[in-house]
Every structure is written in C-alpha cells, then in structure tokens.
C-alpha cells in the first residue's frame, strides 16, 4: 500500500473537519478525493503530508508513519497545495532551480521525469511566475513538485479555477505520470473529473460517502434517472416537487433529473400530470447516471 489511512479524525476548535476516515491507495494508483469546499480534503492532505497532526487515527505514506517518520515522508513525497504556491517574483527557471536545490538535486538529473510538462513552459523560462497564465502556473507547480522524483504525489485541487483546456491537458499529464509508477492522490470539487481516476472516494462534511471505482459507484445508484424538460423550467421544478411520487428532483443543465419512488413508474403518467398543470413541450427520457447524481443521493 502506498497510502494507508486508519480512522483519522480531526477537529478545529468547534468544527469537525474529518470524522473517522479510513482508506488505502495502492501503489501506482491514481486516486481521487471528490467533494465540495469544506469537505475536509485539504485537512486530510495536510495530515498526510505531515503538516498537521490528526486528533485520532494513524496513517502511513510510502511505508512511513506520518508522525514518527515525518522526515522520511518529506523526502519522498511531492506536494502541490491548493493555492498557487510558488514565488511570483522569481522566474520559471529560478523557481524550478530553487526547488531542485532544496531537494538536493538538479534540473538535469531528473529532467526526463518533468520533460513532458516542462517543455510546454520552457519558452517562458525567463518570465516571472506571477505573470504566467493559470494553466502555465499549474504546469510549473507540477514540475516543481516532481523535481525530486517523489514516490507519492499529493495534488490538492490542482484544476480549480483553471479553464477547460488546461484542465484536460493537466489530467493527460497525470495519466502519463502514472505510467512512470508514481502514486497520486488528487482532490477535486469537479464531479466530472472523477471518471478520470482509477478509484475515488466521495467526501462531504468530513466523512467518506463511498469508495470504489467510478464505474462501480455509478452502478450502485438505486434508481432510474429521467431527463425532463418543459417550456418553463421554474414551474416544472415546482410541479415535480409537488408530485407525490417523486424521490428526487434536481436541475441538471438544460434538464431536470427526476427519480420516482415507485418501481413500476410510468413516465406517461407524469407527463399527463404536468400537462394538466399547464406545461407544454414536455419531454421525458431515461438518462445515464453520473457521479454527481450518486453524490447527491448519498449526501441526502
């Protein structure tokens, strides 16, 4: 096991950040920690990177205990915090050189590992880090976190606030790194990124809702979901909430995701109900379950 977490709990004053968290990440796995802001993702990352003590429970990273062997962990892991945490007044190259130096290595020594990523920002190597675009900052931060060839890489919300193109590129980079044998724990608030991980843990309010592969998690969803659309979204939501057999009603893009309490649900009945209420252009059709649906079902 590359990361092993056993019954970790943590509170700040009167707020419980983590409640009895346990899970394991296998060697070479790309593991996603999926949940909204305030779910406890960053707290868990800080405990695993030896920056915080847990109130209860134990954890090991790359075989080292996070409390007793914190110095070993600091030599063997890479960490990319949530905020952009590089020196804005240093150039791209100076930042990378600096982090290489404090890890006792050089850019040349580990160039093959970061090459894929670094070549994309190398043309700007004399630009100050503060003047880079969001996507480039992220690539630089990843290069810096990788410069000492860590066994385990912690990425705390690496794609938050980044445009879709950079997000996509970033995940492609992570996939390539995985092929080089690096274990990765990635946190993200974006449910659609869950599908890109080998396994995920859904987390909310400091508790794990479920852990499995994204495919399995979707399979566990107990209901059939329908996409419903009508000429007036607001009234549609009102009437669906009024409908006595509804199990859940959630806006979902241009549709409403609807589930029914009954096993023998007949969509035509619902359409009739909505028509009687005066709605027009009603469409209803079964749709595929997403991680987000599962998350909401579990979090209810």
């Amino acid at each position: 096991m590359s990361i092993s977490i056993q019954h970790i709990s943590k509170s700040y004053e009167d707020v419980t950040a983590l409640k009895d968290i346990s899970f394991e990440v296998k060697e070479g796995e790309l593991f996603g920690l999926i949940g909204p802001d305030g779910a406890g993702k960053t707290t868990l990352f800080r405990i695993l990177t030896t920056l915080l003590f847990a109130d209860e429970g134990t954890a090991t990273v790359a075989g080292y205990d996070v409390v007793d062997n914190y110095k070993d962990i600091r030599n063997h892991v890479g960490y990319m915090p949530g905020r952009f945490s590089l020196y804005q007044d240093l150039t791209v190259e100076e930042n990378l050189t600096f982090f290489a130096t404090i890890f006792g290595t050089t850019i040349e020594e580990n160039y093959d590992l970061i090459k894929d990523i670094y070549v994309q920002i190398e043309p700007f190597k004399n630009r100050r880090a503060g003047k880079l675009s969001g996507g480039m900052k992220q690539k630089l931060a990843l290069s810096c976190a990788l410069i000492h060839k860590p066994n385990v890489l912690f990425l705390d919300e690496p794609t938050t606030g980044v445009d879709p193109v950079s997000r996509k590129e970033f995940w492609e980079m992570l996939k390539r790194l995985q092929k080089k044998g690096i274990t990765m724990l990635v946190s993200t608030p974006y449910m659609d990124e869950a599908a890109l991980c080998d396994r995920i843990a859904l987390i909310q309010d400091g508790a794990i809702l479920e852990i499995d592969t994204p495919q399995e998690i979707i399979k566990h969803y107990p209901k059939k979901i329908y996409d419903i659309k009508a000429n007036n979204m607001y009234e549609l939501i009102l009437y669906l909430n009024e409908y006595q057999y509804n199990h859940s009603v959630y806006p979902f893009g241009e549709f409403i995701h609807y589930t029914d309490k009954r096993d023998d649900f007949n969509p035509d009945e619902l359409v009739q109900f909505l028509k009687d209420k005066g709605l027009e252009n009603i469409t209803i059709q079964p749709t595929a379950t997403t991680i987000e649906d599962t998350f909401m079902e579990l979090a209810r």
Partner: peptide, 8 residues
C-alpha cells in the same frame, strides 16, 4: 466550490 445539492 459548493456542494452539488446546494448548487442546485
């Protein structure tokens, strides 16, 4: 950053 239910 808000949770999916609140967002809805």
């Amino acid at each position: 950053g808000v949770d999916p239910i609140t967002r809805r």
